[in-house]
């Protein structure tokens, strides 16, 4: 069966991360999950591994409100970094925010494939596979 080899979860909410990892495990769709507590940790990782596609995630689940560097700030830096990354990464914004402004803002960013309102379900994961 097709699987996601490498998924990155960028979120500072420990409980949410714990629960989402469980959902992912039970779905059996993802091989490896990497967790980053904020945008800065995630962008640093991408930077350091920009030449090594085996380390880079195929899918990023990105929260919006995180300390140090939030989701929007991460996306700004990702857009700058993107040309140097030798791999296509599908980015989903995963947020508790139902603000139409946030949703519209996300729509206007090319690099974002979709906006998922928490929680992340098995159905979402199956959908992600299709977009790889």
């Amino acid at each position: 069966m097709n699987k996601i080899k490498n998924l990155a979860l960028v979120d500072d909410d420990e409980i949410f991360v714990f629960l989402t990892k469980m959902t992912i495990e039970e779905s059996n769709i993802v091989d490896m999950v990497k967790v980053f507590r904020n945008g800065r940790e995630a962008i640093n990782f991408l930077n350091e591994n920009s030449h090594d596609p085996t380390q880079l995630p195929e899918v990023i689940l990105l929260d919006l409100s995180m300390p140090v560097m939030d989701g929007w700030q991460f996306l700004e830096e990702y857009i700058v970094l993107k040309p140097r990354i030798g791999k296509k990464i599908v980015i989903y914004i995963v947020s508790s925010s139902i603000s139409p402004d946030d949703i519209q803002k996300a729509k206007n960013i090319n690099e974002v494939t979709d906006y998922i309102i928490k929680p992340v379900t098995k159905e979402h994961l199956v959908e992600m596979l299709k977009n790889l």
Binding site: D13, I15, F16, K118, P119
Partner: peptide, 21 residues
């Protein structure tokens, strides 16, 4: 309103997922 929707929704969603599990 922003605070309520942002800061209260997060934990409530977690509780919801937890109770489903």
């Amino acid at each position: 309103c922003g605070i309520i929707s942002h800061n209260l929704r997060g934990p409530l969603i977690n509780l919801s997922i937890l109770s489903d599990f």
